[in-house]
Design a protein around this nucleic acid. Structure first.
Length: 739
DNA sequence: GTTGCGCAGATTTTT
DNA sequence: TCTGCGCAAC
């Protein structure tokens, strides 16, 4: 087998297949290339069946990339080879072994929002004011417990000493777990602890998996939590062929339980472990690597690698001091335009990074005014919309009728006269009879006479009955293996949801209808990619894999730095590098460890760039409603002068509010004053003006009272002769100007 | 029981 | 700036 394309340490990493191995792979060190070759080597050279190999990663992105590379480089059967994320791996295992844990295999996976709702309900039922105990805190506690590998009834539990079981929070945890179990639901953490539970208590199951997975590969090892580590160790216990790959300097998920000890302690757990470091960087210019190395060396919590590169020195880093966030955005847009127009750079070689999603808006605006094609790699905003959640809840009920959370969400959406009081009444009754909410309402519909004492009105009964039969019918469709999209459409149309929105005929309702249409496309798209599409799989995919299908078009990418991990771009703009933004405000209050994590994040940002790195900060910035003057980030101090040029854009140094600015500006070896020309925003003309008379197709003639927004967002308020006012989104409303 | 409004609160990152 | 919640009026 050819290994020429690998350097010496990479080759060693490939060839060392037996026994525990930790590969510390610095940014841009050819990690994926090495891993893919290693998998190939194990299968093709050692003759191991793909069936005996398991590769787990932390993110879908990484799993996908590995799978794609393997299929393009070899003819390994991807069907037999397991390359998945921890969460999907566990979900799959839990489904097939569900009965061991008293779950049924159609369990629902709750995302963070859903588990928070459950927590709220629990606190509510205990009569606790949500202001006294914040649900977020409880959620954090529960996550923490699970991330460390604790579950209800754990026997061999090294956390037992640390957990105070009399703690009120622990009681909430128990309540929460019980509620999830009743709902036949599992949260993210529960997917992992569930498997741990399975392995702990059913050795025969564990043995089966140990026998199967002879070679174990863990990618993005720095992001694994304690529980995931336990899990992997258990599977690898027999063969000990465990290879973990990670970079402690890129560990940026400790807030979600990632435990840097997993890296720092690996050799304690496996005393005979091999350690290989991949330290040659193939990605970035020498300037960038050296600067990033200086920054990260300030961290104490690391094993220490010495990154180096043969690449050329390259351009200086540009540190750009901007007057405010507006100028920052303007600078980014102008320079991107310059790159594209004057230097013939493709949009997809450029990326804009920021610390928080909230920062993207102003940047987007700027790119739009400069007519630069861009794409925001955002989280799952789409699936957070009300209407989408509503319909998904319908689907969830169809798949898993024990999911009372989803059920109570839709039982009265659209309104069927089943208000909170009625719902509470039925819930209590269900509790009394030890039935799920669904079983209860089914019974009420089936034998109303039995439940006369509930004093449900005819209207309520009719509402429930309609709802129940609709869900039952769709359940039948599902059983008959009808396409998910058919189920969806039936629910949407026959629940009255669609009709209601159409009747509402407002600018909002129209946007919602569009979104629901988009959901339909998403389902259909899913149906095309899978062999045997089921609702269950669709729901699982969208909760576990938020990465959108990205077509590589020539667009500039915009994303948070967390989203940028694992990616590379020739030109990178890192925005908002100010104190309280980056490092984030809360990290500055949480001690050195938190700052170190922010520093790692900054390191990740820097090392994404191949040719040219721009680091920007603003003297003043609009932050949650008011203007804040944060100084430049402390991380800028950590970059030696020789690696950067300092630019000053649109700011007057003598008027700087914070002393630190002046100190800082003088530190730069060469300060260059540059201007930004403000793009005169092509003033989108409004279609309507206050005072003009317009005609609405449905409501007739009226007068425009107010206007707001421009272009796509233009909204107007119309006063109709009868005295009613209505607000419309211009792009949807059937309007015409009369006068 | 429903709807609408106003207010307070929160906003880091995401499987 | 945006969202969710509680409360008051219909």
């Amino acid at each position: 087998m050819q290994l020429d394309h690998l350097n010496e340490s990479q080759q060693k990493a490939v060839l060392s297949t037996e026994g525990p191995l930790m590969i510390l792979a610095g940014a841009g060190s050819g990690k994926t290339r090495t891993l893919v070759t290693k998998i190939q080597y194990i299968i093709e050279e050692k003759g191991v069946s793909p069936y005996h190999l398991l590769a787990v990663t932390f993110s879908n992105k990484a799993a996908k990339e590995m799978r794609e590379r393997i299929s393009s480089q070899s003819d390994i059967d991807l069907g037999a080879l397991q390359i998945t994320t921890f969460h999907s791996f566990c979900a799959r295992m839990l489904r097939s072994e569900a009965t061991y844990l008293g779950l049924s295999r159609n369990f629902t996976i709750y995302d963070t929002t859903e588990s928070k709702s459950v927590i709220k309900n629990i606190l509510g039922k205990r009569g606790i004011n949500l202001k006294e105990v914040s649900p977020a805190q409880v959620q954090y506690y529960i996550d923490d417990v699970k991330n460390n590998g604790h579950y209800v009834g754990a026997k061999d539990d090294d956390l037992l000493d640390e957990i105070d079981k009399d703690d009120e929070f622990y009681q909430y945890f128990l309540d929460y777990e019980a509620e999830l179990h009743r709902n036949n639901a599992v949260d993210f953490g529960g997917l992992i602890t569930g498997v741990l539970n399975l392995f702990d208590n059913f050795p025969e199951v564990l043995a089966r998996y140990q026998k199967r997975y002879r070679y174990l590969l863990v990618d993005e090892y720095q992001d694994t939590n304690r529980c995931q580590f336990k899990l992997v160790t258990m599977i690898a216990h027999v063969n000990k062929n465990i290879c973990v790959v990670g970079d402690e300097d890129q560990s940026i998920y400790s807030w979600r339980g990632a435990d840097i000890r997993n890296i720092l302690d690996f050799e304690n757990v496996y005393p005979n472990a091999n350690l290989i470091k991949l330290e040659q960087n193939y990605r970035s210019s020498k300037n960038i690597i050296d600067a990033a190395t200086c920054v990260i060396s300030k961290n104490l919590q690391r094993k220490g690698k010495d990154m180096w590169t043969d690449n050329e020195v390259g351009d200086s880093i540009s540190i750009v001091e901007c007057k405010d966030d507006r100028v920052e955005a303007e600078f980014v847009a102008q320079n991107i335009q310059k790159l594209i127009k004057e230097h013939d750079v493709d949009g997809d070689e450029i990326a804009v990074f920021y610390r928080t999603n909230a920062q993207s808006r102003m940047l987007e605006d700027a790119l739009r005014t400069y007519k630069i094609a861009y794409r925001v790699v955002a989280g799952m905003k789409f699936y957070e919309r009300k209407e989408i959640k509503d319909l998904l809840s319908y689907l969830k009920v169809v798949v898993n009728d024990k999911d009372s959370l989803a059920l109570s969400r839709v039982i009265n959406t659209p309104v069927r006269g089943i208000g909170t009081r009625t719902l509470r009444k039925i819930e209590d009754e269900a509790l009394k009879n030890d039935l799920s909410l669904w079983e209860m309402i089914e019974k009420v519909v089936l034998s109303p006479d039995e439940y006369k004492y509930l004093k449900l009105t005819a209207k309520v009964k009719a509402g429930i009955s309609n709802f129940v039969s609709l869900v039952q019918e769709v359940k039948e469709l599902q059983k008959a293996e009808q396409l998910p999209s058919n189920c969806y459409e039936k629910l949407l149309m026959e629940s009255g949801y669609y009709e209601n929105l159409v009747a509402e005929n407002s600018y909002e309702s129209k946007a919602r209808l569009e979104n629901l249409d988009e959901l339909l496309s998403a389902i259909k798209q899913f149906e095309e990619t899978v062999e045997k599409p089921t609702l269950l799989d669709f729901l699982e995919t969208i909760t576990l894999d938020t990465s959108t299908s990205e077509e590589q078009v020539r667009e500039v990418s915009m994303m948070t730095i967390h989203g940028a991990k694992g990616l590379e771009y020739s030109y990178v703009f890192v925005c908002g590098v100010e104190e309280n933004v980056f490092p984030s405000f809360q990290s500055t209050e949480n001690g050195d460890e938190a700052i170190e994590e922010e520093r790692r994040l900054f390191y990740v940002a820097m090392t994404r760039a191949m040719k040219k790195l721009y680091i920007l900060f603003a003297q003043s910035r609009m932050l949650w409603g008011s203007i804040k003057f944060n100084g430049p980030s402390r991380f800028l101090d950590e970059i030696p002068e020789e690696y950067y040029k300092w630019l000053n854009v649109g700011g007057r140094k003598n008027r700087l509010p914070e002393k630190s600015f002046e100190d800082f500006s003088q530190a730069g070896s060469s300060i260059e004053e540059v201007g930004v020309s403000y793009a005169s925003k092509p003033k989108l003309k409004r279609k309507y003006e206050v005072g003009s008379t317009v005609k609405h197709k449905l409501y007739g003639v009226g007068k425009v009272l107010e206007c707001e927004g421009l272009g796509q967002d233009e909204k107007i308020v119309i006063l109709f002769p009868e005295g009613t006012r209505k607000k419309f989104l211009v792009k949807f409303a059937p309007l015409e100007v009369v006068k």
